[in-house]
């Protein structure tokens, strides 16, 4: 990173970092109110659906939503980790725009390798290798060459999307295998395999990010890179890791996506905005307004339940995007007011 970007990132994070430490009781109550407010909004909307949407509370429907959220959830975790490690500055902070296109490429690789007659293990390894390779490209660009993450991952997004189109010729590549069959129809304790994937992945992530030294260091690197370096943390290593990890998440999500549709399909790049929305919306559930695993999971489920509830209420699906956008704005606006006047500057 150049001296100027370091300085800019430093001052920005310094301002937001200062908040929790010097805040008085009133502000702390305000932040708590936002957190509770966001959760309360979430609960109120669920309550509304439960009362008025037929079949919303049936276990079949609830599991269905969790299943549908699994893909978005895994991707959003990858994005959240990148934002944690890179800081949440708009133009200079960590971001991985290539994550959705990477998922599409991994799905294409996975389905193509399966179609070529190789077993699940080979296909899975190929998909993960592909995801991590794309992640490595991002990491080299961001850490090795010092390119802005927004810009580097934009170029990589084009490469991944183009590679997917070249590989599949923009067609649907069907895939069937024991692993996919298990993911679709397997179940344990009445909960389907896809839902288990999200539950287990969330649990692992929760421990990894919030209960390990590594996770703590990641927050330090993202929050204040200079301080982290002074404290002896290998900053480039940690930042580079986040991009490899988001590539890994893309690969895992691609396997889930292929299992849901029994094929790799073009157009997965469109998920990017939802992934960004989920990862960024998740920050309002945290005390310091940084991305957390729990917050990300909540917002992923929230987005899933919102789409599902609208479907059950027979509201045109054209409304879903708009309401999702309006809710993001509402929640974030309330949050920034609670942050207090200084923090907004």
């Amino acid at each position: 990173m150049t001296a100027t970007t370091m300085k800019a990132a430093g001052t920005d994070t310094a301002q937001s970092e200062k908040q929790p430490r010097v805040q008085n009781t009133g502000k702390r109550l305000g932040a708590a109110a936002v957190r509770l407010g966001a959760i309360a909004t979430f609960a109120l909307i669920l309550l509304y659906f439960a009362l008025f949407a037929p079949g919303f509370l049936s276990s079949f429907n609830l599991i269905n939503v969790v299943e549908q959220s699994a893909i978005l959830g895994v991707l959003a975790f990858g994005m959240a980790v990148v934002i944690i490690g890179g800081g949440s500055n708009v133009t200079e902070g960590g971001i991985d725009l290539s994550i959705a296109a990477n998922m599409g490429l991994c799905a294409a690789v996975f389905a193509t390798v399966l179609q070529a007659g190789y077993p699940d293990a080979v296909a899975l390894l190929a998909a993960i290798a592909c995801g991590i390779a794309v992640g490595t490209l991002n990491a080299v660009a961001v850490v090795g060459l010092g390119i802005l993450p927004l810009l580097a991952s934009l170029a990589v997004m084009n490469i991944a999307a183009g590679a997917e189109l070249t590989l599949t010729q923009n067609t649907v590549v069907g895939a069937a295998s024991p692993l996919l069959a298990f993911l679709v129809s397997g179940s344990f304790l009445g909960i389907s395999a896809l839902a288990w994937c999200l539950i287990l992945f969330s649990a692992i992530m929760l421990v990894f990010i919030h209960k390990t030294t590594f996770g703590l260091r990641l927050y330090a690197v993202g929050g204040h890179p200079e301080a982290a370096r002074a404290a002896g943390i290998n900053v480039p290593l940690h930042v580079g890791f986040t991009y490899l990890f988001s590539g890994f998440c893309a690969a895992i999500a691609s396997v889930l996506a292929v299992s849901r549709l029994s094929a790799s399909t073009p157009g997965s790049g469109e998920m990017l905005l939802s992934v960004l929305a989920a990862a960024l919306l998740g920050t309002v559930f945290s005390r310091r307004l940084v991305p957390t695993i729990g917050g990300t999971l909540l917002s992923v489920l929230f987005i899933g339940f919102l789409a599902n509830g609208f479907q059950l209420l027979n509201v045109s699906s054209y409304w879903v995007n708009g309401v999702q956008g309006a809710l993001i704005l509402l929640v974030v606006a309330v949050t920034s007011f609670a942050r207090g006047p200084e923090a907004s500057r």
Partner: peptide
């Protein structure tokens, strides 16, 4: 981003 979603709807 929010305006983008709303605009699409």
């Amino acid at each position: 981003l929010g305006v983008l979603f709303i605009g699409q709807s």
